[in-house]
Structure formats: C-alpha cells, structure tokens
Design a binder for these strands. Structure first.
Lengths: 199, 199
DNA sequence: TCTAACTCGTACGTTGATGTACGAGTTCTG
DNA sequence: CAGAACTCGTACATCAACGTACGAGTTAGA
C-alpha cells in the first residue's frame, strides 16, 4: 500500500474540487437521502459535469460521502478516553457520538438504498468494533450484562441513539437533554439485571 | 358520521377488489417501500387501471395500506390483557406486537416518504396511546421509572422492537429468541434505576 | 510558456415511474 | 334483462433523474 487510495496523479485543483463535492454530498444527503446529483453539485458550487468527471455514478458518490463521514467519526471517537470504569467510559463515548449518529442517519439511509448490503456492514465494522470492545470489557469486570447476544447489544445502543436523534428532530426533546436521556437509557440497558425468578 | 368512510354506494364487486388491492399493497410495501403501483396491481391480480379507478394516486394507496395495517394491529393489541402487574402486562404486549412492528417497518418507511408528517403522527396515535397508558400505570405503581420523558420511553420501546426486527432479518438473531431479547431489554429500560449518586 | 489537466455549459439519449384517455368487454343489481 | 357500475388492456403524455457527448474556455505546474 503506497497510500490510502492509489493516486492517479491528480492536480491540486482537482483535489480541492473533490473535497468540496464530498463535503456537499455529506451535507445534502444528511438532510435528504434522495438528494439529486444535481443538488449536490450545486451545493458544492461546481458544475454537474465536473462532478461526473470524478465520480462515475451516484452510487460511488454516496459511498464516498459515507466513507468520509465514518472517517470523521473515527477521528472523533478515537479521541475519547475509554479507560476507567466501563460505565463512565460508555457515557463519555455516547456523549461524543450521539450527534454523529444523528447527523448521518439520513446519509446511512441513502447508502442503504444504493450500496450492496455487505459493503455497508464492512464500512460500519470499525465503529461497531469500538463499542463492542468496551462492552466486552465491562462484561469482564462484571458491570455489564452477559445474558443477551453481543450483536444485539451493539445494535440496540446504536438504535437508541438513532431514536433520540429522531426525537430531537421532532421537537419532542430539547437538544441539551439528549445526552442525558441516551446515556440513562443505555446504562439501564447494559446494566446487569437484578437476579430474580424468571419473570 | 354515518359510517367509517362515507360510502358512495359501491358495488359488492368493487368492495372485493379494493380489499385485494389494499392487502397486496400491505404485502408489497412491507417487503419493499419503493414498490411500484404496477407491482401492487399485479400482486393483487388486478389491472393497473382498476387500481387507479379506486385510488387517485400512489399516496392515497399507501395511506390506505398503512391504515389497514394499523387497524389490524389495533385488533390484535386490543385482545391483549393489560391488567395485573405492569411488567407482566408489558411483556404480553411486546410478545404480541413485536412481529407487527417487524412486518410493517418498510410500510412505515414508504408512508414517511409520501405522507405529510402530521398525518403519520395522527395515524400512530392510537397504538402509541396504548403503550403510554400502560407505562403510566406502571409508573403510578412504582414499578416503572419516571425520570425520563414519556414520549421518549414510548419511542424507545418502539425503536427497540424495530431494532430486533432488523437483527432478525439480518440473520443475527433467531426468530424464537426475538421476544426474549426484546422483553428483557425493554424491562431493563423501563425499570426504576437503582438510586445512587449521580453518575 | 506550453501542454495536459481540469472546469463546466448545453444538449441529448435513456430509463422508469406516474397518471390520463379511450373504449370494448364483463358482471352486478334493481 | 337492461343499464349502470366495474374491469382492464393499450396507448399516450409527462416528468424527473441518470449518465454521455462534445467542445470551448481556464488553470495548474514542469
């Protein structure tokens, strides 16, 4: 591997255009998953033809946008301290990531309609892995439950963030309350349930 | 109000066609939210023109399908015993409703793209009300938490069912485990959290 | 400065879905 | 059984988005 994507010797100019296009794509698709190629080009302040000069079709554009969003997410996430008490670490993780999930919800939906299913999973593996490791550590320390499948726990956490974002968009939840609500819910979900006769 | 929908004196024949169309719409849209009017007509074993004879446009067809799905849901739900311990009642409610949510997830998405936002909320009010009342009762009895907004709790429960359905479709969760996983998660979410210093 | 890379408008061909028009055949229902 | 209601195919008009073709102008960079 020489670099991230093997470079076909692009001009600095083109590099800039591509960056603007990807940024515009993220922004547009995050607001409306059905945004047109035209919309995106306009938002990028670029002709549609220029766009097609860099991305052969809409699908690859969507994938590029999603990849970029995930890359940014990775950066943010990797700066979170996941040491110490697993519960506290989870809270910190949620506080930094709920807004990311909120912003790219629509983008994810756009990708779902265009990308093959496996491709999506592959792209999502990294962030999911991060959450999974933390949960696993908490399980080892006895602070998180072990009676439900790991994939479920990860997915449920993700969905709770998603739900909170939806709630905020709908105006039923103030922005400053989102973090509290999400963390409280997730902590309840992950905590070891009180032992008791099978209910 | 004379009846459900004021009747313009339809023939028994037409009534039957409409029923088949609505059923087909539910089935198709539940598999693919972007199903074509054509697809639906074919699935109903009916010409596209017949369909347009009863529904002026796609949007009204989608709405009819959703309304029907919710009506069926109401019927099932209203047969659930919501008396006794609130936790047990919630478990019974979840066991009967998770599959409904699973089946009409795509249908809901279809409606989201076509119906005005307020219309959706109005249609969903009834089932949401049912869950809300049960939660409220549990809160009064001290078995459910009161530290989070009611709308959030309702929405979170709905989303957990949704997540479980997704998990099953993806093959990461066996059908017979869904109910257990959902109920365990929801019970954890709704239970009164152990008192403790603000974490 | 000279050339290759890049920008970008206009125009076109294609595809796929929506909804309309017409009209002939079929089936209720009074 | 007669007429109204219903079915339904074919054909058509529309529309919106995708992706391609061409070509002239502009800019980077050796």
């Amino acid at each position: 591997m020489s670099s991230a994507t093997h470079r076909p010797r692009r001009r600095a100019d083109a590099e800039r255009s591509i960056a603007r296009i990807v940024a515009a794509a993220r922004s547009c698709l995050s607001r409306n998953p059905d945004a047109t190629v035209d919309d995106i080009a306009k938002a990028a302040g670029v002709g549609r033809m220029t766009l097609y000069g860099h991305f052969p079709n809409r699908a690859e554009l969507v994938e590029a946008a999603l990849t970029d969003a995930l890359r940014i997410g990775e950066e943010t996430l990797s700066s979170v301290d996941v040491g110490g008490d697993a519960r506290d670490a989870m809270t910190r993780l949620l506080e930094s990531s709920w807004s990311l999930v909120a912003e790219s919800a629509a983008l994810l939906q756009a990708a779902q309609g265009v990308l093959p299913a496996g491709r999506l999973l592959a792209l999502h593996a990294a962030p999911a892995e991060r959450v999974e490791q933390l949960i696993r550590r908490g399980q080892g320390e006895g602070t998180f439950r072990t009676d439900l499948p790991m994939t479920w726990l990860v997915n449920a956490v993700h969905n709770l963030m998603h739900a909170a974002a939806e709630e905020e968009r709908a105006g039923r939840l103030a922005a400053e309350d989102v973090a509290r609500v999400v963390t409280a819910s997730v902590q309840s979900l992950l905590a070891v349930p009180p032992a008791g006769p099978a209910r």
